[in-house]
Design a protein around this nucleic acid. Structure first.
Lengths: 279, 279
DNA sequence: AGACATAACTTATATGATAAGTTTAGGAAT
DNA sequence: ATTCCTAAACTTATCATATAAGTTATGTCT
């Protein structure tokens, strides 16, 4: 009984990879989010491998965000979400100092597409969701004016800002856009705080941020997709300028470059990359 | 010695998750692609956990595409690549029957951004790379006219097609775009074959496909980003129509619907989603 | 110096055991 | 009968240990 089922449909791969791929097929073919996988023991006997192998295979799937694991419970097929993807984008961005600007560049395209579709397709509850986030920004903004500089409130404001864009993505009805924008907000969180800092530095009140969001929402409500695109473009260009300002006025390079071929060829491309986004 | 290092900086998480996150930090902070992680035994002693725990943590990172594993060798930090991301997009697409069209919708935006940037920034070797792929398409195309219907040649043609678009993404100089387009080509592989089938059905020679790519390349060479965007848009719209044609003329629904809430509400949205892409 | 065998290192997988969660079933109390 | 609690059954988390099978380094022999 040494020839396990796992080896049947796979060449030189290891048993873990083979099991992982078979489980993936199984999930794709006949499972939906929320359903539980069989118990480790059952899979082990079904695929003719030890429990260790099964566990490692499941950990791979978990790393890909395909299943969620918790102690005492069987692994559960997870809803597609941008979270796992966000880790990945974080890796790309981390790998290259210019990465954050690359990300902003891509974000601009996606957000414009997102808001364009939202203007065409948004349902009433989806609109309410967007409105909700905008109201959250207003509340946080007012609170922020009173107790100036409260970090928690600032974070709340930022979360509503992110939520606003995610709500638009949701309203677009396009799952891929929703996941990608959700994913990008993970590494962009840093950028958002930079953006706020830039805004403070340049002396712009955060009223203008709220107003920009308001204009976007208005365009969506009016079902004017072209106007919505332009409003979004303007908002993101503004946001990009803030980010650049924050970058230029940042504390100090501190000279401590990490090993590897990074942190080069930045200065001259910085301005170009961000400005070029106005086509 | 029962209090392991792994628990030190983590709350209720399991040891595996804790180790995985610490390893992630380690990689982000002081490693670059190509470097090897310590041996399992060393990590085990360093983090105060058993080798099994280390192995499961590494399998999680491998699932996320952060490291590559091979027998007898230590785990190696991998170059960011769209491959792992492609699996993820595949899951989104699989999860929703409309997903493939969502993906095409997003692809259009990204490819347009990609070609626009490529027209502005492409270096000479990057241009050569694009040219190369186009030449590959021509060769495969001629070969395909002689030995009509050879599957391997058809696959080659398709690979050059994908390669053409990836080469443009590379020329854009934006890593995020490169990874995303590479990622999308994984689930879109099916769509590409559908597209080719649609083209055959509608009686269009694949000369037109090559010509469309040629036009795109010409615009890039001329550094005319606007024209390049338009050429790309036209090409993708054409490609989308082919895909829809292939969908409508597909063998038969065969009635075997899978369990779950899928494969519903498709008919009426299909046409809308694809047509709406021409704005 | 170069080819080859061998040792040292490393990962892949299996077995068995224990701890600690979650769910289920049964019974006690109301 | 219904509710609540407890205990058993199930399940995952982690460990220790062992063996097999790859890769790399270390020689020795020619």
């Amino acid at each position: 009984m040494s020839e396990s089922v796992a080896e049947k449909s796979s060449g030189g791969q290891t048993a873990v990879v083979s099991v992982a791929s078979q489980l993936t097929d199984l999930i794709y073919a006949e499972m939906t989010p929320g359903l539980s996988l069989p118990s480790e023991a059952e899979m082990a006997s079904r695929y003719g491998v030890s429990r260790v192998t099964i566990r490692e295979a499941i950990k791979m799937l978990a790393g890909r965000g395909l299943v969620e694991i918790s102690r005492g419970r069987r692994a559960v097929v997870s809803e597609p979400s941008g979270k796992a993807l966000g880790e990945f984008l974080g890796w790309i961005v981390q790998y290259d100092p210019k990465g954050m600007f690359d990300l902003v560049e891509v974000r601009m395209s996606l957000e414009i597409k997102s808001v364009s579709l939202a203007a065409k397709r948004a349902t009433r509850p989806a609109l309410a969701g967007i409105e909700n986030m905008l109201q959250g920004m207003r509340d946080a903004g007012q609170k922020l004016e009173r107790e100036n500089g409260d970090l928690a409130t600032e974070r709340l404001f930022h979360q509503c800002d992110v939520g606003f864009h995610e709500a638009i993505a949701l309203a677009s009805g396009n799952r891929v856009i929703t996941s990608l924008i959700e994913a990008m907000s993970v590494p962009l969180e840093r950028s958002f705080f930079m953006s706020r800092r830039g805004k403070t530095l340049r002396g712009l009140p955060l009223e203008s941020t709220i107003a920009a969001h308001q204009r976007i929402l208005d365009c969506i409500k009016k079902r004017d997709s072209t106007a919505a695109e332009n409003a979004m473009r303007l908002h993101l260009e503004e946001s990009g300028r803030d980010m650049r300002a924050a970058f230029e006025n940042r504390p100090a390079p501190s000279g401590g470059g990490k090993p590897g071929s990074r942190s080069a060829f930045l200065p001259q491309t910085l301005g170009v990359d961000v400005d070029d986004q106005c086509r």
